[in-house]
């Protein structure tokens, strides 16, 4: 997105300096208000609470302490965080490998088919992800549809335990996040200038080289956006990992959720939340740096 905006600005050429009136400020006020109320204030609250203590009933006691952070950097929580990051990484990688060809195919097909195909990607998302996750449970469980099919076709003789395994967790995550990878890449592919590809062929490049030297760099903004859109929410996801994994391998999202409920320790949950936020900011910064260096 930044690339195209910069390109448009360059194409427009130097514009005469003009002082903006009050009008535009009025126009953005609702958005600024929204950001302040629902992004900045909650984040500040999280930050403040993460330095507080709590009493026996779980009420926050406003006295300053570093204890939540020293506790958060214990090996046992970092290990859980590491597992969550690993799950998110796997999910992102699989989504990229599966989503890229699909996005490319949709983006290069005729305009009439394109709308229909994008619809097909979107339609499942008109249903709540919890219901779709429960559907997976009834497919993958031991007495479920998949095992019944495999055994009827005599492919397996005994039911396979698909459910409540890391496999099931990754499957649930990939299934739920795939469209967030497909859509931004599709947007990049759609904008791809076909004449550049033709030029590459004319200059004697083979398909593999055209892909790696022309198509891939031009669709990189879409890929970067897709990777962020999948990776960030996948780290913090707790509902799908809990349902599909049977709660046996807690992710950092589940741990944080627990602090705010059963563990009665909101300040510690807030500290873990701040750490997670730091990771998100770091990955945003890395990806923007990555994109900038590509431009140069």
């Amino acid at each position: 997105m930044a690339v195209t905006a910069a390109a448009a600005a360059l194409a427009a050429g130097p514009s005469p300096q003009r002082r903006a009136g009050l009008g535009p400020w009025f126009a953005v006020t609702p958005m600024l208000g929204w950001l302040a109320l629902f992004v900045i204030v909650p984040t500040l609250m999280l930050l403040v609470i993460s330095f507080c203590e709590r009493d026996g009933l779980g009420r926050i006691v406003y006295s300053f302490t570093f204890e939540n952070y020293t506790r958060a950097f214990d090996w046992k929580w970092l290990k859980i965080l590491g597992i969550s990051v690993w799950y998110a990484f796997l999910t992102t990688a699989i989504c990229l490998v599966l989503g890229y060809p699909v996005a490319y195919f949709i983006g290069r097909s005729s305009e009439r088919v394109r709308g229909l195909l994008i619809m097909l990607v979107m339609i499942p998302f008109w249903t709540s992800f919890l219901i779709r996750t429960y559907a997976w449970i009834s497919i993958l469980s031991q007495d479920g549809l998949l095992n019944a099919l495999l055994m009827t076709l005599k492919i397996t003789s005994a039911p396979i335990g698909f459910m409540y395994t890391p496999f099931a967790v990754i499957l649930g995550l990939v299934y739920n996040f795939l469209p967030f990878m497909i859509l931004p890449i599709y947007t990049s592919v759609e904008k791809l200038d076909g004449s550049l590809i033709e030029a590459a062929y004319d200059l004697g490049a083979r398909p593999a080289r055209v892909f790696s030297k022309v198509v891939l760099p031009l669709t990189q903004p879409g890929m970067a956006a897709g990777i962020l859109l999948v990776f960030v929410p996948a780290i913090a996801m707790f509902a799908i990992t809990n349902l599909m994994g049977g709660g046996a391998n807690p992710t950092i999202g589940e741990v944080i959720q627990n602090q705010f409920t059963k563990a009665r320790n909101q300040p510690f949950g807030a500290a873990l939340g701040v750490l997670l936020l730091a990771i998100f900011i770091l990955s945003l910064w890395l990806s923007s740096k990555f994109r900038r260096s590509e431009q140069e």
Partner: peptide, 19 residues
């Protein structure tokens, strides 16, 4: 009976044993 602040320790023990 109510556990009070000990609830956090109980949760920590079980979470780490699971992980």
């Amino acid at each position: 009976t109510d556990l009070g602040e000990q609830a956090s320790k109980v949760d920590e023990l079980i979470t780490t044993l699971k992980a």
